[in-house]
Amino acid sequence: MSGAPRSPELRTGWGRTLVFVYGVFAVAATARSSYQLLTKASEAPLAYGLSALAAVVYVVATYALATGRRRLAWTAVGVELVGVLVVGAVTLLDRADFPDATVWSGFGAGYGYVPLLLPLAGTWWLWHSSRSPRSGASATSVSSRE
């Protein structure tokens, strides 16, 4: 995807906070899912597989926001929003397939619903930063390897 413009403003202002929160979730979800898959994958394969998927999504979202890759960030945040809504609903309706919780279970209730709020905040930030006056100038002036 070489030649696509970068948007460094994604990690400034409130974006600084958002990237940090995504980073915390990326580290926590990666560590937790790695531990689950390495030690007890057979106990709840679906739940632990979804935990691993969530970890990948958080890592990609953190990377995309921190490096100003707007399109990739939109994709990651979109997948995250769909994931937390679908998994949240399924875990409430069909508890049998989820003997252990994922980060998205119950719409992220185990994490104070931050997993539900985070993609909403990410969507708002991506939309808001694309409308700010400086985003256009910086997006076109910085080259990208994306």
Binding site: G15, R16, T17, V19, F20
Partner: peptide, 20 residues
């Protein structure tokens, strides 16, 4: 990590990252 990441960000966003 919070101190490093918020360093240089002069808006409330930097302080909020440290708060997180």
């Amino acid at each position: 990590a919070g101190i490093v990441w918020s360093h240089g960000e002069r808006s409330r966003g930097g302080t909020a990252a440290l708060l997180v």
